[in-house]
Design a protein around this nucleic acid. Structure first.
Length: 231
DNA sequence: GCAGATTCCCCTATTACATCA
DNA sequence: GTTGATGTAATAGGGGAATCT
């Protein structure tokens, strides 16, 4: 029974305690305020509602001063959200969109160095989202464009979420398998009990009610197991 | 105070390139 | 040298919320 409840609970609570889900479930307004450092405590409370599997600290407090260097790359008022400027050089040489393609017209692809990846990874461990100042600082340090740092964090979050979903899937699959096995065992046991002869049943039921008299008792008239002293 | 426009940041899905077996 | 699989940087487009006019 307990296991049944646990199973139900497990299914219903899928993802509730996971950091990704946690963040996406938070109303964006609150999340944004938290990101800007204006309500760190409130954000803390929000995530305490979860099952506590999250191990990632929240972004450190930041004044959230908008980064003038990064404005040019944002979406246009008409909803065109392409970033007009990209950088293709690992050394941070800024190129225009047209320059981001080689002479074949193919998109050049940056490969981050091990050091760059390691630093980004370290940073991601500390906080999964970027404040404008943190973004700029990382970009400066890594000699990348802020937009590239931003994209890296976006992709990293996506990868992280995917991994989490995969591990959740495996965990629930195992849980499901074990519950199926248990269910089969109980079905078998029930079948055996139903095929018992009356005397055997009384004997069995008496034994059961003796074992846990607080919970079960055998009705002498109808020979059914009832809910013990409470039933 | 309200409405619409703008800005910012996030997410998901997809594309395209680099690398490796 | 070619090819398919894989990893991932980059792009596209949509949504929510804050801010501005």
């Amino acid at each position: 029974m307990e296991e049944m409840e646990e199973a139900c609970f497990t299914g219903l609570s899928l993802g509730l305690g996971l950091k990704d889900y946690c963040l996406t479930t938070i109303p964006t307004k609150m999340k944004r305020e938290a990101d800007r450092g204006s309500s760190i405590n409130r954000r803390d409370e929000m995530c305490m509602v979860t099952l506590g599997l999250s191990t990632t600290p929240f972004p450190e407090e930041d004044e959230g001063e908008e980064d003038p260097m990064d404005i040019g790359g944002r979406e246009s008022p008409q909803g065109m959200k392409a970033h007009p400027e990209t950088c293709d050089s690992i050394n941070g040489v800024t190129t225009s969109n047209s320059e981001s393609r080689n002479h074949n017209g193919r998109r050049k692809k940056l490969r981050l160095s091990k050091d760059q990846s390691a630093l980004l990874e370290d940073s991601f461990k500390i906080h999964r989202t970027l404040t404008p100042t943190h973004k700029q600082a990382l970009a400066d340090k890594l000699k990348l464009k802020p937009r590239q740092v931003e994209v890296w964090f976006q992709n990293r979050r996506a990868r992280s979420k995917l991994k989490q979903i995969e591990s959740d899937f495996e965990r629930l699959k195992k849980k499901c398998e074990s519950l199926s096995q248990r269910n089969q065992r109980l079905e078998k046991e029930l079948h055996e009990l139903r095929s018992m002869k009356d005397e055997q049943w009384v004997s069995y039921a008496s034994r059961i009610s003796d074992l846990c008299p607080e919970v079960l008792s055998l009705c002498s008239s109808c020979r059914k197991i009832t809910g013990g002293r409470h039933g």
